[in-house]
Each structure stands twice: as C-alpha cells, then as structure tokens.
Design a protein around this nucleic acid. Structure first.
Length: 425
DNA sequence: TCTGGGGTCCTAGGACCC
DNA sequence: TCTGGGGTCCTAGGACCC
C-alpha cells in the first residue's frame, strides 16, 4: 500500500491583510491607501493594510496612540464588520474546499489543506488556486506548502516576504536549510514571547537551529508542544488536520463596556445578554453545558483606580441548554463575585464542560428541562427569521447602554438587503 | 477622554486518599 | 523537638494562536 497521506503536501492558504482587503473589495477608492480596522468599541488596531504595516504601526495598538499618524497619512479607519468578513470568508473557504477532500478551516482568514496527490506540481496547483480566489472574490492570498503544518506556516511566512513566486512558497528537503535559516524562532508557529526568550538564551536563534535541536532536551526544558514543533520542522507530522465542523469544547461571550459600570443592575443586564448569546451558540452545535464560568474585571490600565478581578465556575446539578436556566446560573455566579465600590470595564460568560445532546447524563434528582428547552428552540427560530434579539429576556434590559461603540462601520454589502452596494450610473 | 474577543492545550500545585 | 511518601484527580492560570 502506498503511503500517499504521509507523503502528501500540506498547504496553508492565508488571506493577506484580510479585514482591510475586505473593506477594499467594495470600496476600490481605498486601494493603495493606508487602511485600518478597529476592535470592538473602536479601541485597538486589529487589521492593517500593507501601507500601514510599512508605517511601522503595530498590531493591537490603541488607536488614540496613533492619532497623529492617522492625520498625517490620511489613514482610512473602519469599525470591524464581522458580518461582511464572515461572508467573504465562507466564499473563499468554499473555493478551497471544492478541489480538496481534506481541509481544516483554521481561522476566519486561514485554511489548511492536504493537497490532493493528483496535483503533481503543488506550486502550480497553489498558484492556480490563488488566482482563482482573487478573481472570484477580490481577496489576495498567500500560500505556504510543506510536509507538515508547521513547515507550511513557515513557508507562508516567507511567501509574504517575497520568497518563492506569486506569494506561493514551498519548503522541502532540497531548500529547507537555506529557507529555515531566514526565519527567526519567534516567527515559528507555536513559539511566543516566552519560548523565544528561552530559546535565545540557549543559542537557538532561527528555525534551522530549532530543527537541529535535541527533541528530548526540548521536551524536558519546555513542553511536549515544543517537541512537536521540532519534529514538524524535520518533516515528521505531529499535528493533524482537525476534523471539519469539530464541536467546540468551550463557548465564551464577553465585551468591554463603552463606559465604566459600577451598579449591579447594569452588570446583570450584561451578564444575562452574554449568557443568552452563549446559549444560542451552544444550541447551534447541539451541545449541553455542565458548568458556567462568570468573570468581571476593572480597567487594568487605570492604575489610579482600585483594581478587582474575579472568576467563578458554577457547577450545574444537571446539564442545560435552555437560555433561562443558563442565565439563572450565570447570575448566581455574578452575585457570588460582585463587589460594590469598583468601576468595572469588562465582564463575560464561559460555558465549560460541554457534552453533545446524546451524551447528557440523567440525574436522579432533577428532571430534564423539556419545556424550557422547547421554549429556547422556538425563540431561536423566531430570532433567526426576524433578526437576533427580536425576542429577549427582560433581565437583559431594554437598552444596552453598556454596549459597544462602532462609529466607523462599513455597510454589510453582501449580507443585508438594505446595504447592497448601489451603483450610480 | 480613549486600550478586543474567542479559542486550545499544558502544567504546577492543591486536595485528597491510602 | 519530632511531625512519611507516593499516587491520582482536578482546576486555575499561563502560553500561545488568530
């Protein structure tokens, strides 16, 4: 039997400057101009066009710190429009999926694929795919190819820096020493700030150094994950493609407030809304929850104010998937950790210990909440048909005064009938 | 004035037991 | 003053990712 799977190449398809590119698709006047997309509350920079990267503006910086640069360079700024980005992402993923059996959607703008061995020239295949995605969606992508996910990621990193051709780069045994020497350890998938520091202290500076490292030594002094990185740099597969549509093991919803909040009543509104949204996500993957985490925290950047942050995990007597039960448990957690006298900046709800519906343990002492589950299912149907939050629980509050600020939002060109692009002729 | 959100995995260390 | 040793299980928090 031939081991085609072992021998086949893995590619990662990665959209260039994804959110900024999405804004440009429907607004070509933005081409060649610096473009920035902001996080919730219009707080931090979460996406930058190449022009902005060239200006040296880092990822994650709060926008108020670069106000002067925005003015000088006429930087175009947008609030994040996830309805638009999600829709364009789906279109791209479908194009990739159409030619490959094994695929993993790794994030909104990245996908791993096992290149079908019938494509005898992986570079040619990738170049064709790249051109097709650009032609059909207007989004430019880069593609890295290697024998493992880690090598594909390294190749992709290089492809964005002009190594290879047409934003496609392949690493194999003929060129890996040369190429891996160009990559700093910090730019390897799985090596963050802390590990980078440790590696440098020990004389390991680039990806080729790490490839040569002793796996046992790495595991002993770092983690099993880091050992896998070494193996993968050597072409030994340790990280498999994830099954598509894998169910999540935890679900969280959280927001920073647009202003400081100290009163319990507004926090109840916020926690209830997060619990309700989490419950919807839970039902959409047909799961039940066994314990619910709740946290709140003050503004950690305000050294002049008293700080408080706490997390609690509420164990449920029986697995739930209905909104009212989940809200009640989350509020129980909130009451346990809330302290008056603090200015809160953020709170959130995390659903932990998820199980699929058919794995729910029956309890001797609690009945299944059939009625509540049916009510929640009906609410989901109504909200899907008439828009989210058509029906909501009273405890979520009438107005969301704590909610987010999005002052520079682009239209949802592809997902909202009222916001289609209008052409004036 | 203004500083994101949603995940996964690993490990250290406490609780508990014999 | 002396005050074991080792195992398992669980969880909070860290590190990392996009």
């Amino acid at each position: 039997m031939s081991s085609t799977k072992q021998d086949s190449y893995i590619a990662i398809v990665d959209c260039n400057n994804f959110y900024a590119s999405c804004e440009r698709v429907f607004n070509p006047a933005l081409n060649n101009k610096p473009v920035i997309v902001l996080s919730n509350n219009d707080g931090c920079v979460i996406a930058r066009s190449q022009e902005v990267k060239d200006l040296g503006i880092p990822m994650g910086i709060p926008v108020f710190k670069i106000k002067h640069l925005v003015e000088i360079h006429d930087i175009q700024i947008f609030s994040s429009n996830f309805a638009l980005y999600g829709d364009i992402s789906n279109r791209i993923m479908n194009i990739i999926r159409s030619g490959n059996s094994e695929m993993e959607v790794y994030s909104i703008d990245e996908a791993f694929v096992t290149i079908n061995p019938r494509y005898t020239d992986p570079i040619d295949y990738a170049t064709t795919l790249r051109n097709k995605i650009y032609q059909w969606t207007g989004i430019p992508v880069s593609i890295g190819i290697g024998k493992t996910k880690t090598l594909a990621k390294v190749a992709n990193h290089l492809s964005k820096r002009g190594v290879g051709k047409n934003n496609v780069c392949l690493i194999d045994s003929t060129n890996d020493q040369d190429l891996l020497q160009k990559v700093k350890v910090h730019d390897i998938w799985g090596v963050g700030r802390r590990k980078q520091k440790f590696l440098k202290i020990n004389g390991i500076y680039n990806a080729y150094d790490l490839k040569q490292a002793n796996p046992e030594w790495i595991q002993k002094h770092m983690t099993i994950i880091s050992r896998h990185t070494v193996d993968e740099l050597n072409g030994r597969k340790k990280i498999e493609l994830e099954r598509e549509f894998a169910t999540k093991k935890s679900i969280s919803t959280s927001r920073s407030f647009s202003r400081m909040i100290s009163d319990l009543n507004t926090l109840r509104n916020a926690i209830s809304s997060h619990a309700s949204r989490s419950a919807e996500k839970l039902r959409s993957q047909n799961s039940f929850v066994n314990s619910i985490g709740v946290y709140l925290c003050t503004n950690r950047f305000r050294a002049d104010l008293p700080q408080y942050r706490r997390y609690i995990n509420v164990q449920l007597p029986v697995a739930l998937n209905d909104t009212s039960g989940i809200i009640n448990a989350a509020l129980e957690g909130l009451y346990a950790i809330y302290k008056s006298g603090y200015e809160y900046k953020k709170c959130g709800v995390i659903l932990n210990d998820l199980v699929q519906a058919n794995e729910v343990q029956q309890s001797l002492f609690y009945n299944r909440r059939d009625k509540d589950e049916r009510i929640s299912a009906s609410i989901d149907q109504i909200n899907q048909a008439f828009g989210s939050d058509t029906i909501r629980y009273a405890v979520q509050g009438e107005n969301e005064s704590w909610s987010i600020k999005r002052e520079k939002l682009s239209p949802s060109y592809t997902t909202n009938w009222n916001e289609f692009l209008t052409l004036k002729v």
